[in-house]
């Protein structure tokens, strides 16, 4: 393809090709501090292409494709090309990753121990990870936690942090010196702005950590903390994993190992200050 960008995020190398220059420029700017894929060979290839040749220029619409595709994906306007690239990279991971068990979770680390937060879109896992990364924690990722079945360790995958709607202003206020991508309005999930992980998160992204606490956050409820029993955790995490079935017995090993060794709590919170206090209290009690 005419415009190409390659990047390595944690253990995964991507090559993004595009019919248009703009999304590639944005990726190159936002991922400027990231390394290239090892030996120049990417694990996954992503393509941003026009559905019809004339759609490169007339009301340009970005289709996403690559090694793994979903046939009925709707195109995005070119103004949301960066979002299309990020979604396409997610898609490759979700459908193609076989080395690690993927959990749809954010992850932050402190003293070699990892806090995993998983929940539906809107639960606040990205926001909390972004805010914790400004409060002494290392950001390991806001979208996928990578669990190695052989060791049980969580590997970092610190892609751009996808902030949505109210979370954008909250994180902008908490992280005035941080770098952000363009504000993308009117996306299928509302307004989106990407936060660039801080330099320490990128510099240490090859360092895995031992999972120590698993949280199921829920935003918009009166504050509450409940223990979640291992059987329920296993059930929830099979649903929060995009490749559990494809991983076969290695996925079972990784997941049961995690469930048996890591305490889990569901936390409800009405605002992020309260959530951060809940996290601090739970972490100190470990």
């Amino acid at each position: 393809m005419r415009h190409v960008f390659s990047v390595r995020v944690g253990p995964v190398g991507f090559r993004v090709g595009s019919h248009w220059r703009t999304p590639i420029r944005q990726l190159a700017t936002l991922y400027a501090d990231y390394p290239r894929p090892e030996n120049g060979v990417p694990d996954f290839t992503v393509r941003l292409f026009a559905h019809r040749p004339w759609r490169r220029v007339i009301r340009p619409a970005v289709m996403i494709g690559g090694d793994f595709m979903i046939p009925d994906a709707a195109p995005l306007p070119l103004a949301q090309g960066l979002l299309a690239a990020e979604m396409a990279m997610n898609l490759q991971m979700a459908l193609g990753q076989r080395r690690y068990l993927l959990l749809h979770a954010s992850a932050v680390e402190r003293d070699g121990r990892v806090l995993l937060m998983t929940g539906e879109s809107g639960s606040g896992k990205s926001t909390l990870a972004a805010l914790l990364s400004r409060a002494g924690w290392r950001l390991m990722g806001d979208e996928f936690a990578l669990i190695d079945p052989a060791t049980g360790l969580a590997h970092a995958f610190p892609r751009l942090v996808s902030l949505k709607n109210e979370a954008i202003a909250a994180v902008e206020a908490a992280a005035p010196g941080a770098r952000f991508g363009p504000l993308l309005e009117g996306t299928p999930k509302g307004a989106i702005r990407h936060l660039v992980p801080d330099a320490a998160a990128v510099a240490t992204m090859d360092m895995p950590g031992r999972p120590a606490l698993l949280l199921f956050p829920r935003f918009g409820f009166a504050p509450d903390i409940r223990a979640v029993a291992p059987g329920e955790v296993l059930m929830r995490l099979t649903q929060a994993s995009t490749n559990y079935v494809a991983m076969g017995e290695r996925g079972f090993t990784a997941l049961t190992g995690l469930v048996r060794s890591v305490p889990a709590r569901a936390i409800d919170y009405p605002d992020t200050d309260r959530a951060l206090a809940q996290v601090a209290a739970l972490w100190d009690a470990l």
């Binding site: 029993a229 291992p230 059987g231 296993l234 017995e249 079972f252």
Partner: peptide
């Protein structure tokens, strides 16, 4: 592979 969890067994 049988892994006891709590009241449930995987």
């Amino acid at each position: 592979r049988i892994v006891p969890l709590d009241a449930f067994t995987a």
